[in-house]
Design a protein around this nucleic acid. Sequence first.
DNA 1: GTGAAAGCGCTAACAC
DNA 2: GTGTTAGCGCTTTCAC
Lengths: 355, 355
Amino acid sequence: MNETDTKRDTSTSDRRAHKKPVRIEDVARLAGVSPITVSRTLNQPETVAEPTRKAVELAIERLGYISNRLAGGLRATQTRTVGLIIPSLFSNIFAVSVRGMTDVFSQAGYQLLLGVTDESFDVELNHVVSFLGQRVDGIILTGGWHDKRTRLRLQQSGVPVVETNILPSDPIDMAVGYSNEEASYAMVKHLAHCGYRRIGIVTFPVLSNDRAHDRRAGYLRAVRDFDLVQRDTLIAETSYTLAGGALGFAAIVASNPDVEAIFLTQDTAAAGAIFEAMRRGLRVPGDIGIAGYDDADIALEFVPTLTTVNTRRYEVGATAAQMLLQRIQGEELVSTIADSGFEIVQRDSTHRPSN
Amino acid sequence: MNETDTKRDTSTSDRRAHKKPVRIEDVARLAGVSPITVSRTLNQPETVAEPTRKAVELAIERLGYISNRLAGGLRATQTRTVGLIIPSLFSNIFAVSVRGMTDVFSQAGYQLLLGVTDESFDVELNHVVSFLGQRVDGIILTGGWHDKRTRLRLQQSGVPVVETNILPSDPIDMAVGYSNEEASYAMVKHLAHCGYRRIGIVTFPVLSNDRAHDRRAGYLRAVRDFDLVQRDTLIAETSYTLAGGALGFAAIVASNPDVEAIFLTQDTAAAGAIFEAMRRGLRVPGDIGIAGYDDADIALEFVPTLTTVNTRRYEVGATAAQMLLQRIQGEELVSTIADSGFEIVQRDSTHRPSN
DNA sequence: GTGAAAGCGCTAACAC
DNA sequence: GTGTTAGCGCTTTCAC
């Protein structure tokens, strides 16, 4: 239809040009009402008379109006946006929790801002500051260890905060999770009941991650309580990946050829460990027992199925979202700390308990 | 220190109360300058004289000032926020792409808003409208199929858009990806060269997902071109999960006991299929060949390692972010469509090519 | 290199 | 049930 190249070029660059957006005033004019009536139709439709509402809705439809949330948020000091900070994307575990959150938030019309820290406290602080700058209505954090300045800024801001996957002794505000120490203890206790005495453990680096720290602490306590073999070389740190699990497995087996079972504190790592065992011609659980953590998809689908700890990640996410919404909406919370619990799941990658 | 319970209660509820945030004016007063100088110190520090800048920075530090991005964004019509829409969180594949994006965006000081669609075009539309309302500076979409209204709103808004993981014939704006049809064709061709003639394929539902649709189309074309066995029962649809892969495998094997190889168009599903084969006592590749798609972590760590298609997901994410930033910053783009390519990776889950 | 005035687009507060 | 006025906290524009 265009006759010249010039004309086509123009239309192409048009696509890039920011069109002047429709404003509330434009809608108001078309509907023959004042801007505030349009605002009310959008935010509290029940306070607007039926015919007026219809007229406004028609005008909105006609003009393709999308309310500017920056302006609204600035005035109303409410943005319907929540910031979420997680350590890593490379874990289905967080995906499950995030799913629990988005299920709750999207129902309530809230958007999620995502920040990934890679286990860095500095990066976490940056995300928090950025979120506060965007005037999020709430923030969800992973774990209970944070930079001092992160805690300070959050507390000064007065923004509702939920820490997840732990049970903090000194919460910033609210929390939902369970005791990683108890869960890990329970698994090692379970393995002891299965007849294992030389048990290794693989965690994420314990210096940057309180969940990892607590899980190792639970292991150490169980080793003492159940009189298990105690060796530094039975403890390894790696990343929570398939390759990391394989590495952790290799490290422990290298120093402990007699190791009977290895507890990898994440299912993906446990799967990686079993693959490594396969490569070495070792049978699981025949030659060595393997336990995981979190009860992810892979724990149930793996061959052999994985003995693991179910940590109800979906519920943790959903509960975190609900607590945040309640607080945002000014409701009284029965409790600011929710224990989501955990459960040992015995499957085929370890021997069964002896009795 | 507090003497009464009442007093403690007050301090507890204080935590919930929104403190009046520090404003730019407060900083300006403390630093003995005007608000605009504070703004410049924050946004274009090079235009502020050294001593002035120092004084302002000190005041910011002292007051713990965090600039209100709503106000800034409203006035500057720029929010340094980008909306990302992905079909699913339950896939490490997207995690890899998202990682590519956050690596680029966080460097540039941009925040990511996340929307998950679950393959629903309606949900996608909702996210797009919501993002436009938040005045994001750009939007990244997955795939090239969208609701008519989604396209319309995006084009009317003039906001830069990148569609990813496909090479669209009629892009909304920009795109980075590769031909799913060619990639799938190349894999089936490869399998044919490996000596397989009865090859099944498992995809995601093709009605809601153009990538799945294109991959099946590539399979069908290759089946014709290489004179492979053509049967409707060699084609299955499932979800991209371990369990889905097992189901797809089971469905094809049930109708085709003589099937020689199955191409599952995602690695997680391929892994699930191999697990299912193991459960049935079938060896891979001895009894049946299995191919995956995307070259995820698991493809390399699995035993056996997985023959797959590398689709450079990290690069797709990073490139999408870069294209968006360039356009946001008003730079000319050499090309609005980037072909990220793909590569067949031969590993141990299929026989090697015959020649 | 710095400041004063104006206004981004919406909604809170108050009126009728 | 609807309208008027003012202002949220910044940054643009223009001045010096």
